[in-house]
Write a protein that binds this DNA or RNA. Structure first.
Length: 854
DNA sequence: TACTCTAGCGCG
DNA sequence: AAAGCGCGCTAGAGTA
């Protein structure tokens, strides 16, 4: 019998726990040992383990599945404030875990959650590891989520139950059942090649998958190529020491790839993230293969909240054991045979998933339509975008580098005088010698400890914040230089040094994730073109090679237009129908409501009218002439005024209104608006002012609160919302009966998602249509940034294509497929030239014609 | 030495 | 009563 130690002091938890060292009283020998995290409040109060709500949830699930065993926790004292135990505490409590294992002598151990997994297996990342079967010292460990996670997010319950069911099977079968129903055929001679071609030519569903030794096709090798049919999985050793194809074919792998091309074209190709595999074939062998059905993308549109990796999907749908292998084997370092089995499983499950997911999609025709007509075509579109890449202007790149380096040196010099002699910030493991201005921790020590400045705000983890917003509120000479240094350093490390590893000649080839967000927007990486600063100094680095022009097609105010369309708010709809700039409208209405900024209104309007006007006349004039004219007058007459402590002209005011629009549109409260106005524009608003602006906004756009309510109610009743074309955002937490932060968040997402999603989908429709209408020798789409498209176009076609972009943007053909019509007009604008420095079509025409004449 | 996490900040 | 949404990348610092 283990003796509990009520005076255990192995970790600090004994100080806060009521019941120290909560060992289960009935611990005895059993084949099955179930290990949770730590006692909760109920347990700590009563001294009895597993009596709380989560304990109940676990007991019920185990009972339902007839899993019997003894239960305990990885950590035996309750951590304060329901936090999870820290690594130190888990390690300290291993002493007890070892004793318990010794005592129970289990054959099967169920690890519930990260903490148990860490304690028992010294592994982290339950989301990645869950479902994994691990054998150690003759004991089989199985990992899944902690029941507390399930009670927090109900959508994971089926996955969890499935895991537990598998655990039960493992117990019943005395181990995990390996999937042996595969038929891997290594294709490394002409005979098996011929056999494979025959099988592929039957015209059925064929899964396709390659293994590579890297993620970047320009800097790696394809080790194997694989095809899966109903009866077999063919694995072709490709750019691999064991491959025979270079020897058998004088033209090498290119020839094999090209001869495979015809067969592949006739197949219905299924792949998991086929964009990746097709890109590699395009880069390595210039063959253009298309994916007909992508299991990753299908699963993403069916459940945008989930993970989508193949192993996870196979486990989720077919309950197979984990089969992932070491990277070394995948990269072909240990011979083909080890790899073949793994790849055969990949091919088998990919093919199976096609049928499973297609059946799921068929149950939801609207979602299926989005998948078929929008998402799947994007796979090929973005494969090409990645292939063509972004052209970098290296002379500008070097200029920017020199400029930024110079700024860094200047700022550092100015800052260094503030470092006291013989003083070091007390940091345990500093990265660099001496004082580091790039370290928030060290800067914090200097400002708040040494200089004695009051801490303004704390970070989430309780450290003294040195964020931009905080620094701006500190009245000290150094903040200006520090902010400049941060900016310059960030640009250097992101775009100058950060891009270096990704250059392929003069091009960058970012990767797009069509499944990158929950709303249907894309994300991008390596590097991410969606976060290039608007600062033209950086943005212009992205340009076009000689003979081509970069064109940016931007949907103007896409999200506001869609919000108008969906809410049917009369004021917003009117504005868009009559070409009134809504950000401007919001701003003018706001200032006229307060009768504020009268000097500015009267001055600008008078300058425009050529006579002295009254305030209310001025408001009408401004509303009519719009932001561009007002900004011009500003510039001409130098009419910026100090407003609430900041210097603002019409340009800044409109920008501020834009933030107001998006903030309030998506459910921002006036309290946050005060913070926002302060941090972003240095404007000090009184609560009264902020509240007035909030109320005034929804008074102006009366349709918005009603629409918000409709969205919330729908989400609450149905657990999801859908966009106008049928893309769904599943929000299970929106259905909760009690007000929780999670539900409030889900409700806000119910408002935002259909707007963000449709704007992005519209942008994709335009990109797809452009791709269909123009061949890649005249136009190459190289990136999208949420509601804009970047492409390069051969010079002679610039005018024609620009005009066509504007036409398409007003009404992309794909909208018909979704029977989707708008009352609010959609509009785009094109900019021609280096990114961030592009000019309108008119200006380009003028300068180009002049250049031709010269 | 390599990995993970946080803070901070860029974008729409 | 309380209330923007969606991302990726970097350096620093802590951890194994």
């Amino acid at each position: 019998m283990i003796k509990r130690d009520p005076n255990c002091t192995r970790c600090p938890l004994h100080q806060s726990a009521q019941y120290v060292c909560l060992l289960p009283p009935d611990l005895h020998q059993h084949d099955v040992f179930i290990v949770g995290e730590a006692p909760g409040k109920r347990e700590d109060d009563s001294g009895v383990p597993f009596v709380g709500v989560t304990g109940q949830l676990l007991r019920e699930a185990l009972k339902e599945l007839r899993i019997r065993g003894v239960m305990s926790n990885a950590v035996l004292c309750r951590p304060p404030e329901n936090r999870t135990p820290k690594k130190r505490e888990i390690n300290a409590c291993r002493f007890w875990m070892a004793q318990q294992l010794e005592h129970v002598k289990p054959k099967y151990v169920l690890c519930l959650g990260n903490v148990a997994m860490q304690s028992l297996l010294n592994m982290t990342g339950i989301k990645k590891q869950r479902g994994r079967v691990i054998e150690r010292d003759g004991v089989i460990y199985f990992c899944t989520y902690h029941p507390a996670f399930i009670s927090r997010d109900e959508s994971y319950r089926p996955v969890w139950m499935n895991d537990l069911k598998r655990f039960k099977e493992i117990i019943d079968n005395q181990g995990a059942k390996e999937d042996t129903d595969i038929n891997p055929i290594i294709v490394n001679d002409m005979k098996s090649y011929g056999h494979m071609i025959d099988d592929l030519s039957k015209g059925g569903v064929v899964s396709y998958d390659i293994e590579t030794n890297g993620l970047y096709p320009w800097k790696g090798r394809i080790t194997t190529l694989g095809f899966g049919t109903r009866t077999a999985q063919y694995i072709i050793p490709w750019d691999h020491p064991e491959s025979v194809w270079r020897r058998l074919h004088p033209g090498g792998l290119d020839t094999v790839a090209w001869s495979l091309r015809r067969t592949v074209r006739e197949c219905y190709i299924v792949a998991q993230n086929g964009k990746f595999d097709c890109l590699w074939m395009k880069v390595k062998h210039n063959v253009h293969w298309r994916t007909d059905f992508d299991t990753l993308l299908a699963h993403h549109i069916l459940n945008e909240n989930s993970l989508h990796d193949l192993e996870y999907l196979a486990q989720f749908y077919y309950g197979v054991p984990a089969y992932d292998i070491d990277l070394e084997i995948k990269q072909g370092k240990q011979g083909i045979a080890a790899l073949a089995k793994y790849q055969a499983l990949d091919l088998k499950y990919t093919r199976m998933l096609k049928f499973t997911l297609a059946a799921e999609l068929a149950k939801d025709p609207a979602v299926n339509r989005v998948f078929k007509h929008l998402v799947m075509p994007c796979s090929d579109l973005f494969m090409e975008a990645e292939y063509y890449g972004l052209y970098i202007d290296f002379s500008k790149y070097n200029e920017a580098k020199d400029y930024l380096n110079y700024r860094v040196i200047k700022c550092r010099r100015a800052l260094n005088k503030w470092i006291p002699k013989d003083w070091t910030p007390n940091v345990r493991k500093p990265k660099k010698k001496g004082f580091n201005w790039g370290s928030p921790k060290q800067v914090g020590r200097l400002l708040f400890d040494h200089m004695g400045i009051d801490v303004v705000e704390e970070t989430a983890k309780g450290a003294a914040s040195t964020s931009e917003s905080v620094l701006k509120r500190i009245d000290h000479e150094l903040v200006g230089d520090l902010l400049k240094l941060r900016g310059a350093n960030q640009q250097l490390s992101f775009f100058i040094d950060g891009w270096k590893p990704f250059f392929v000649g003069r091009y960058l080839h970012p990767a797009f994730k069509i499944h990158g967000t929950t709303t249907g927007r894309l994300s991008a990486e390596h590097p991410n073109p969606q976060q290039v600063p608007r600062d033209p100094r950086i943005r212009q680095l992205i340009s076009a090679p000689p003979g081509w022009e970069l064109i940016e097609a931007d949907l103007s105010q896409a999200e506001m237009r869609i919000a108008a369309e969906l809410s049917k708010d009369p004021m917003l709809v009117y504005a868009f129908l009559h070409d009134v700039d809504v950000h401007w409208l919001t701003m003018i209405k706001e200032i006229s409501r307060n009768a504020s900024w009268s000097d500015q209104v009267i001055a600008t309007a008078s300058a425009h009218a050529g006579r002295r006007v009254t305030y209310s006349e001025g408001i009408d004039v401004l509303l009519k002439i719009g932001p561009d004219a007002a900004i011009d007058i500003d510039a001409e007459h130098d009419l910026t005024f100090p407003v609430d402590g900041a210097m603002l002209g019409w340009k800044e005011l409109r920008k501020r209104a834009k933030a107001v629009n998006f903030g309030y549109l998506y459910g921002m409260f006036w309290k946050k608006f005060i913070i926002y106005a302060r941090d972003k524009y240095g404007i000090k608003l009184q609560p009264r002012q902020a509240r007035d602006s909030w109320e005034g906004y929804f008074d102006l756009y009366k349709g918005l609160p009603k629409w918000h309510q409709r969205q919330r109610t729908f989400a609450r009743m149905n657990g999801y919302v859908a966009s106008k074309i049928g893309r769904k955002r599943r929000l299970p937490e929106a259905m909760l009966d009690y007000d929780t932060p999670g539900r409030a968040e889900a409700w806000r997402q119910a408002i935002n998602a259909p707007v963000q999603s449709l704007a992005s989908d519209l942008n994709l429709m335009i990109a797809l249509q452009l791709r269909r209408e123009y061949d890649t020798d005249v136009m190459r789409i190289c990136a999208t940034v949420h509601d804009s498209i970047l492409m390069r176009v051969v010079r002679p076609r610039v005018v024609e294509i620009s005009e066509r972009i504007l036409e398409i943007s007003g009404c992309p053909e794909l909208l018909n497929v979704f029977q989707c019509q708008f009352t609010v007009p959609m509009e785009a604008e094109v900019k021609i030239g280096p990114w961030g420095r592009g000019v309108s079509l008119e200006k380009w025409k003028a300068s180009h014609e002049k250049a031709v004449k010269d």
